[in-house]
Amino acid sequence: MSGDRPVLFVTRRLPAAVEARAARDYAARLNPADRKLAAAEILAGAEGAAAILCCPADRLDAALIAALPASLRVIATFSVGTDHIDLAAAAARGLAVCNTPDVLSVATAEIAMLLLLAAARRAGEGERLVRAGRWSGWAPTQLVGRGVSGRRLGILGMGRIGRELAAMARGFGMEIHYRNRSRLPAALAAGAIFHEDEDTFLAASEFLSLNAPGGAGTRQWLNAARIARLPRGAVVVNTGRGTSVEDAALAAALASGHLAAAGLDVYDGEPVVFPGYLGLENVVLLPHLGSATAETRDAMGFRALDGIDAVLAGRPPEFAVA
């Protein structure tokens, strides 16, 4: 039966909808127990396969790639990152490698908007107060936060996630300012105000969202000097990279009141968190689950399968890294 269909080896358990599509279109070898496979097991599973769908926990180094069967034509990874795959070794063998960019943008922008609202409106404090059974009554002065509607939002890094966030924030009547390597064409900027100058950008940012990629250029970008140039009472949100923030400086500004609040989903050294944050009431902390929705995880799997479909049909894949 499966003789007509190419063999697809899926190294880990994937969302049900993704596995269903894999089984529909391929002679799929699945890993329902979701056991982490050793190199020898990956090689055994790949025997006779035309495609592998792997995950970041699998290590596809040069030795393993060299030992993969001659039948193999494409490796797709269920991730944006490809650090776990030796791309040069794959290229040397003529193997295509596909990843799953972009589909995380909306889910991550939602987490940025959630953090922005929760930090400004003191939702973490309110939640803890109610859940501890310490709610004593209503007063006009209780847990008074910062208004969001109509405020200025500065976005550092106006890529896909930054632009999704801008679209959401416009629904709240926020005025969008941004800094980026280059000015966006008008259709993508959609009215957002570009700042060539870092000082004017920081001064405009009543709310600041970090959506920049990692790397040397943004290492500890948000330091004490830049925080000091934000308006007093500003709110900072980071869903980009933990390394973009100098933690001690941010915690100090939250404690002093120069910043009203912060919301963080990413951390330098995660899953260990700078201890200075944990005692603060005016910081909302999430455990780097920006893309953790069923829809997003499904979409990542479908995008990986799209890449496999394309390569096996002789078409160039839309999202290839090798």
Binding site: R121, R122, A123, G126, E127, L129, V130, R131, W135, W138, Q142, L143, V144, G145, R146, G147
Partner: peptide, 12 residues
Amino acid sequence: FLAPHMGSATRE
């Protein structure tokens, strides 16, 4: 997600 009736709780 619980909040103590703070829907209108901003200074403004």
